[in-house]
Amino acid sequence: MDIVTLFNLEDLLICAVILVAALGAVLHRNLLAAVVFAGVVSLAVSYLFLRLSAPDVAMTEAAIGAGITTVIFLIAVRRTEEVEREEP
């Protein structure tokens, strides 16, 4: 099975979503936005796992990545500070 039959157009678009959201999660200075970007990455990766016919991995990724991690990171951002400081 070559790459063209394995991935079609919607998978490539979802991969573009993952790439843009991951770059935003790394580069954004506002930590709340970075948390949202990380949640979007795990949401889209969950669809990609489903597309690669691993529904159990997709369910675990949706539970851990989208549910638990976003809430824990939001609590952590609230207890510390919202905007990342410049490096000295």
Partner: peptide
Amino acid sequence: VALVYGILSFL
């Protein structure tokens, strides 16, 4: 999977 995803993304 879609069901679990819907509930947790709502959370």
